[in-house]
C-alpha cells in the first residue's frame, strides 16, 4: 500500500538531490505525515544517506514524523495576533483539547499547532480550523468554536 502510493509520487521525479524537499512535501500531502519507511525509501531513491533525509525532515517545521489528527487547529502567533492576546488563546486551546501545541489527541481527531501570520492581521487574533479562519477570537469564542467543532464532528461520525 505504502509502496504503491510512494512509488507513484517518486515516479514523477528524476532522482536529483535537489528534489528532496519537494518529494517530502508531496509525500506529506499524500500521507498526512512522513512515515519512517517512506523516509528510508526516499533516501534509497535519491542515493542519499538516510541521516541526511532525516536531518532535512526534522529541520523544517512543515514536516511531521508522526500521524496527525483529522482536524488541524492552528492558533496564529503572528505579531498582530500576539498583541491581541494570541498566547492566552493558545494556552486555552491547549487546555481545552488536553494537548500541547504540536501534539495530536490520542483519538487522532485533533492536532494543535501554532503558526506565524496568516495575513488576516486586521481580524486578529485568528484561529484556523482546517481552512476556515475564525477571526477576532476571544476566550469565549474559542470555547464555542472548539466545542461546536467537537459536537459537529461527533454527531457526524456518531
Amino acid at each position: 500500500m505504502l509502496d504503491r502510493r510512494l512509488n507513484k509520487i517518486l515516479s514523477v521525479f528524476e532522482g536529483e538531490k535537489g528534489d528532496l524537499i519537494s518529494i517530502l512535501q508531496r509525500v506529506q500531502e499524500e500521507f498526512g505525515f512522513l512515515p519512517e519507511d517512506a523516509l528510508a525509501a526516499i533516501a534509497e531513491f535519491l542515493k542519499l544517506p538516510p541521516s541526511q533525509v532525516f536531518s532535512v525532515a526534522t529541520f523544517y517545521d512543515y514536516f511531521h514524523l508522526t500521524r496527525r489528527g483529522d482536524h488541524l487547529i492552528c492558533v496564529c502567533q503572528g505579531t498582530a495576533c500576539h498583541v491581541r492576546g494570541a498566547r492566552d488563546i493558545l494556552e486555552m486551546a491547549e487546555k481545552t483539547l488536553g494537548i500541547k501545541s504540536g501534539q495530536t489527541t490520542p483519538d487522532f481527531k485533533y492536532s494543535l499547532d501554532r503558526l506565524a501570520c496568516v495575513g488576516s492581521c486586521a481580524l486578529a487574533p485568528v484561529v484556523l480550523v482546517g481552512d476556515d479562519v475564525h477571526s477576532k477570537m476571544t476566550m469565549k469564542k474559542l470555547k464555542d468554536v472548539l466545542t461546536t467543532n467537537r459536537d459537529n464532528k461527533e454527531s457526524e461520525t456518531g
Partner: peptide, 25 residues
C-alpha cells in the same frame, strides 16, 4: 516555483539556496 517548508532562516539568501538544493536551510 519552489515551495519552502517553514523555516524563517530560509529567507536568508544562502540558507534559501541550501533549501532549494534540497538541504537543511
Amino acid at each position: 516555483i519552489v515551495k519552502g517548508a517553514g523555516a524563517f532562516v530560509c529567507g536568508e539568501e544562502t540558507a534559501l539556496i541550501a533549501s532549494v538544493e534540497g538541504r537543511s536551510g
